[in-house]
């Protein structure tokens, strides 16, 4: 009796959970497919070649074909590997990426989880992926994997600081850790325009530090191809490799979405102060288009870095963080505080 009642009570919730799980998985899959395709096309454009153009019109279905190939491929486990950890690692990486996406508002009221400490929550979740990477490197029983994983550990732990400090500058300006309130505070203009040079500096620091966080060139040391063949995921193949690959792109989207939300106003249309007429016209463009447009702009920026710059060395990478980015972001934070206290921002 009680069992059936509780089942009936929880039935809608279970259905809702299942639906949202399917929704998130679909969103991730589409996001991953699109971003991989976009990356390859951007790279091709910068390198004077065509990029994928075989499968589908302009090669649109290329990434789908790649995914099918990866799914049907055998997931090979090396003989001496720690089988359980080896199996677990890709899941941890992808779960942490999924969790980090939860509090980001994609349009007015469209958010998986409206949490009050969103700005702290996202980097906290995103940095969990280091556990998966370390696990993968250790369990593979491969020297290249281990070196890659150790590099990743040092790198993510250091750059976490700069990411946090640059996010804090916006938190100081708005006085809130909630993503929704941060977006609403940009009703009369985005922070990158309102906050003068200090916010611009913290935006640059955020982009650099988060590029390092998601292991992309010029900071792709954990998987440095010409040094460590493929770094921590050398031994992975098939769908397990696909998970690492997908998580890289999802992480890139999260980072860009956070940057878009904090510095470019998220789904908030382009508003200038109290020009009501202009703001009204801008409001006709729906929020999701603004949000995804801004995110894609930041993603393009990160891709642009990747296809231009050579890779840093591990000690230079840490030097850059501790000697340049950390002190600058600390000083910058002081300036932001000063601006906030004096009310100099618009």
């Amino acid at each position: 009796m009680s069992l059936s009642i509780s089942l009936i009570t929880y039935f809608p919730i279970i259905i809702r959970l299942i639906l949202s799980v399917i929704g998130v998985i679909c969103f991730f899959a589409i996001l991953g497919l699109f971003l991989v395709y976009a990356e390859r096309k951007v790279a091709a454009g910068m390198q004077l070649r065509l990029g994928p153009n075989r499968v589908g019109v302009f090669g649109i279905a290329q990434t789908v074909a790649d995914t099918i190939k990866l799914i049907t491929k055998e997931s090979f486990t090396p003989g001496m590997a720690d089988k359980f950890l080896f199996f677990l690692a890709p899941f941890i990486v992808i779960i942490s990426a999924t969790l980090a996406l939860a509090p980001i508002p994609m349009a007015k009221g469209y958010q998986f989880w409206n949490i009050d400490v969103g700005v702290i929550y996202v980097p906290a979740m995103a940095s969990l992926s280091i556990i998966g990477i370390l696990m993968a490197g250790w369990a593979s029983n491969n020297k290249y994997s281990l070196i890659g994983a150790m590099r990743s550990g040092a790198q993510i732990v250091s750059y976490e600081l700069s990411v946090g400090l640059s996010l804090l500058s916006i938190v100081i300006l708005t006085g809130s850790l909630n993503f929704n309130e941060i977006v609403m505070s940009q009703d009369n203009g985005w922070w990158i325009f309102k906050g003068h040079i200090p916010v611009l500096i913290s935006f640059i620091i955020f982009i650099i530090a988060s590029t390092a966080e998601i292991n992309r060139t010029p900071f792709d040391l954990p998987e440095a191809e010409s040094e460590l063949t493929a770094g921590f995921h050398t031994e992975y193949s098939g769908i397990q490799f696909a998970m690492f690959f997908l998580s890289e792109y999802v992480n890139m989207f999260i980072v860009s979405a956070v940057a878009a939300t904090l510095f470019f106003g998220g789904w908030m249309p382009f508003h200038i102060g109290h020009w009501a007429a202009f703001n009204d016209i801008m409001n006709y463009i729906p929020g999701p288009i603004w949000f995804f447009g801004k995110s894609l702009f930041v993603i393009f920026l990160i891709m642009w870095f990747r296809w231009t710059f050579p890779r840093l060395r591990i000690d230079q990478l840490l030097n850059l963080e501790w000697k340049y980015m950390m002190p600058i972001s600390l000083v910058n934070l002081l300036f932001v505080t000063l601006i906030t206290i004096m009310g100099w921002h618009f």
Binding site: Q47, R49, T217, S226, P310
Partner: peptide, 16 residues
């Protein structure tokens, strides 16, 4: 050299 140091674009410009 570009490719070894992690920059892929020089590879294509050199080959061009």
């Amino acid at each position: 050299t570009g490719l070894d140091l992690g920059a892929v674009t020089p590879f294509f410009l050199g080959f061009r």
